[in-house]
Design a protein around this nucleic acid. Structure first.
Lengths: 350, 350
DNA sequence: GCTGGCACTCCCGTCGAACGAGTGCCAACC
DNA sequence: GGTTGGCACTCGTTCGACGGGAGTGCCAGC
């Protein structure tokens, strides 16, 4: 499991290299290392260690006679074994609380979370809306807009609201009320994933009993169910928003080549989805470093994500940040995880 | 009114300079001009004209022995007098229609519009959500979530849906229905700007008549009205979304200095609001060039905006694009105006 | 196994020369 | 008077040479 060749001091050297490189953005040499960290040995010794670290693929030399730069593998080891998530300062904590507490609805929570994350980490923030499929139905509302048109509003327990206008045959207000009541009785409280089955059931049982005056036409019910289904299925493609792109411009002057593809990638929902990846509990951070990302456009960036949800256990969506591989991992990880936890608590209250 | 010193040929020269510079992004010299446009005179003549144009402030020479570059004033003249909005190609038109026709709800319309504009103009697109204040109430829905909690949903005729959860005293389902009906009767169809007055009226008339069993408590009504008011007032700060930032990266390699402030500006709602400025009819384009923008961060960009709304006359919001001053004005203006018109038509149908 | 010394590599900034695009001006031309 | 060709001039850009400096690898000694 362990690479036996890396004894304690060598790991310290790697950690020091990562820290210095992240701080200065410049290749770090042996002399600078011993000056800034008290490693208790001479530069020459460090050089030997560095040669070994390079041989093992943890660091890399842009050219002879330059300092060393961590490789993706080096960052990986750093993240896995050489550091811990850095807890936020009291001030940062307070900032999160006061900023998110002011949110008035789900949209607002998401928007604020993006801004908060971007500001806290000084990187690009990515937040997924609570997934429709993973949440449950809180209420379905039918609103008669005109004689033959009704608006269908779906409200989930995460506060998400989706609406759609449906053209149906003529329908009485009383029939509408009756339908609303029955529909809600059938599906409220269910997870969205279960709704399709329930709806089918609902539509099937429909024409069975007779009391025609007070009842909507079967065709209308069918139309409604169809649209409701469509909403759930179509919206399964989740909405994701991002912000803080200005922070991209702070990174290296190795510019257009690296920033352009990233911006392009961010604008594609599909890419964002892949970026956030599979669900993980709020306490579990996923860190994907450089080429660990499947997307070519993002091979020089790292992505730190985690799940969030109502409380600690039910995960409804993901959030995280994206930055250059040379990012402050401990700080970023601390911020992401703290924000995720607090957003979860906010959702719980709502 | 006219600058008499600028005869026909000089204007042609200016137009040619703008066109070439936009195409090549490089200062354009006299020789290149006569080669690419058949002006019928020699380079020497053009040089004289250019000297004059420079004297008048329409063009500018980065340094002796470089070609000329249009100034903001030059672009202004170009936009005002030397060009017409370029109509879209048939293919572009079709693209707009098919892309926007697929939108399922307001969110979708806006998102799609942003992407469409960004793609069409290859610049940054900015779209404002239909303003709440300028639209009218289509329906208010009250949904009982629990014994003491109701969800208030406001639906406007532009398809916008806002919802908020309100904590009220215990309230019966029948009382809720009664309140819903009365509230809708009072405010449906009114413009949002008028709603505050109507609500005050509504709340005042409230306790007057008695039929207590079936009626919600006055305190509950007050709470509801307060929240409704808040929604309207708070949401008066309009939502604006943008996209296509990747296109920023295509512009000059005079980079970080120019792209960073722009990205920063875009992330501030306040700035975006200023950017879109006051309402204009869909047929009227606003073009703000370089320093004509009030914002320091945007003095090297141009902004092309227009209003859009249900049909041609009622403007509900603005949309437009932002790019470098060296943009293809005729093409951009054509795209912006075509998209605005079509979005208006979509809203009309919805 | 650590250390100091030393030769070596290679990046980077500076300098100067050659180059070339583009100009402004002027005298000549129509 | 407007237009033109010619010409000297300016100035940014490119290229190669050069020196300084940071950093390394290696080796001999402790």
């Amino acid at each position: 499991m362990d690479e036996p060749k890396l004894d304690r001091r060598r790991l310290d050297v790697l950690r020091a290299i990562v820290e210095d490189y992240v701080a200065t953005q410049e290749p770090v040499g042996s002399k600078a290392l011993v000056e800034r960290h008290n490693l208790g040995v001479s530069p020459a010794t460090i050089r030997n260690d560095m040669a070994l670290l390079e041989e093992e693929g943890y660091i890399h030399q842009p050219h002879t006679s330059a300092g060393r730069v961590p490789t993706d593998k080096g960052y990986r080891l750093f993240v896995d074994r050489l550091t811990n998530v850095k807890p936020l300062t009291q001030a940062e904590r307070r900032a999160i609380h006061s900023f998110l507490d002011e949110a008035v609805d789900l949209d607002d929570v998401v928007t604020r979370t993006v801004r908060l994350l971007a500001q806290l980490t000084r990187q690009v923030a990515v937040v997924q809306y609570p997934s429709l499929t993973r949440s449950a139905v809180r209420h379905v509302e039918l609103v008669g807009l005109a004689a033959t048109r009704i608006m269908l509003v779906l409200i989930t327990d995460t506060g998400r609201v989706e609406q759609r206008v449906v053209e149906v045959g003529p329908i009485e207000e009383t029939a509408l009320a009756e339908l609303r009541a029955r529909l809600n009785a059938q599906i409220v409280g269910s997870r969205l994933a279960e709704v399709p089955a329930l709806l089918e059931d609902f539509a099937r049982r429909q024409p069975a009993d007779g009391q025609p005056a007070n009842r909507p036409a079967p065709s209308a019910v069918d139309a409604l169910c169809a649209v409701l289904l469509e909403m759930i299925v179509e919206q399964r493609e989740e909405r994701i928003v991002f912000g803080g792109t200005a922070n991209l411009a702070r990174f290296g002057h190795d510019f257009p080549d690296t920033i352009h593809p990233v911006l392009e990638a961010l604008e594609e929902q599909v890419v964002l989805l892949k970026l956030l990846g599979e669900a993980t509990a709020p306490s579990l951070l996923t860190v994907r470093i450089g080429r660990e990302n499947e997307l070519d456009q993002l091979t020089s960036t790292s992505v730190v994500t985690t799940g969030y949800g109502r409380g600690e256990d039910t995960v409804v969506a993901q959030l995280g940040v994206l930055g250059p591989t040379r990012m402050d991992y401990p700080g970023t990880m601390g911020a992401v995880s703290a924000v995720a936890r607090y957003v979860g608590r906010i959702l719980e209250q709502a």
